[in-house]
């Protein structure tokens, strides 16, 4: 191909008057067209983000107008009634609670795995084990949900009973049985799903720690853990924060796994063990089939809230990553 270009291009360049780096003439049309196409394709992303907000607002307004209760403080969901009564207080609370619990459980483990893969395990072992963690990320959420409901509910139920029997005086574990779909079950499943995301991002960050910093720490006589605490963790701090926030974004929007493992109960309660829990996303999946037009519009309204929350979380996370990238890029 390059040979062909060698023979044809000088002629073309001469025909166009020569001198310039790029041939002039009819090819400029193709160049403009291609550049225009690429710019349009790139801009699609912006268009889609704006369109999501716009269309969700348009479709949400009718239900918000018809709602006879306060959308932000009412705890139940009777959007199909006439007049419709619905509010996101309980499901928004559930969304935040399950996500927070999932992160509390997942982040320490994920950071441990990331450290293990970058600084502890043998390199070849680490790449194989990292592959397994990536596989965990590839498992569809409906499979997590099914596993949580059909298998994991048993062990978690036993664990709930154990917690209630021995630590029942802590309000979180005060709920009595039966121990079925609960906030505890949902948030543990969610934690397992968030784990690979936080792991893969913090692993990247830890792997980027400058070797000089690590070697300097070790040369001063630091133990491996002291080296990690003084060199790796401070360097990776912004990256860790960003990866946690991205995990949070994923957790907030998780739908199917939670629809299968939470109790779908509309109340604001810190009881983790008893039947309970619901989230904005799970509520949409559970209520959609039975929704009438107003009900559908109400679900879209709750989706708009979810979109706004995840947008803020993701933008914050990305802003942190970007600032850090500039910093690292400038130092390099």
């Amino acid at each position: 191909m390059s040979q062909q270009s060698l023979t044809t291009t000088p002629a073309g360049a001469q025909g166009a008057g020569g001198g310039g780096a790029l041939p002039r003439g009819s090819r400029l049309g193709a160049e403009k067209l291609f550049r225009g196409l690429a710019t349009a394709a790139g801009s699609t992303v912006l268009v889609i983000i704006v369109a999501i907000a716009a269309f969700l607002i348009v479709q949400a307004v009718p239900a918000l107008r018809a709602d006879s209760e306060n959308f932000f403080t009412f705890q139940s969901w009777f959007a199909n009634d006439d007049p419709p009564k619905f509010g996101i207080a309980a499901i928004a609370f559930g969304t935040v609670l399950t996500s927070a619990l999932a992160l509390i459980m997942a982040v320490p483990v994920a950071l441990g795995i990331a450290l293990c893969l970058t600084h502890y395990a043998h390199r070849r072992v680490a790449s194989t084990l990292g592959f397994f963690i990536d596989l965990l990320a590839a498992v569809p959420s409906v499979v997590f949900g099914l596993w949580g409901r059909d298998y994991f509910r048993g062990p978690v139920g036993d664990f709930s009973k154990f917690l209630h029997d021995h630590f029942g005086w802590i309000p979180l574990f005060g709920g009595g049985g039966p121990y079925g779909n609960s906030i505890l079950l949902g948030s543990i499943v969610l934690a397992i799903m968030v784990l690979p995301i936080v792991t893969s991002l913090s692993r990247e960050v830890f792997a980027q720690t400058p070797a000089q910093n690590e070697e300097a720490a070790l040369a001063l006589g630091a133990t491996k853990w002291e080296m990690i605490r003084t060199a790796v963790l401070p360097y990776g701090k912004p990256g860790i924060i960003a990866s946690v926030m991205l995990g949070l974004g994923r957790a907030l929007g998780e739908t199917i796994a939670l629809a299968l493992t939470l109790g779908a109960v509309y109340n604001v309660s810190f009881d983790l063990l008893g039947t309970g829990g619901n989230t904005i996303a799970a509520n949409i999946a559970l209520k959609f089939a039975e929704a009438n037009p107003t009900g559908r519009s109400a679900l879209i309204a709750s989706g708009l809230v979810l979109f706004a929350i995840t947008l803020v979380v993701n933008m914050t996370a990305r802003a942190i990553v970007y600032r850090r990238r500039e910093f690292v890029g400038g130092a390099a």
Binding site: I49, I52, L56, G253, T255, A281, F307
Partner: peptide
């Protein structure tokens, strides 16, 4: 940022 859009929101859109 779009990578983090929840799948249910894409469905609603």
């Amino acid at each position: 940022v779009m990578t983090g859009i929840p799948s249910i929101v894409a469905g609603l859109f």
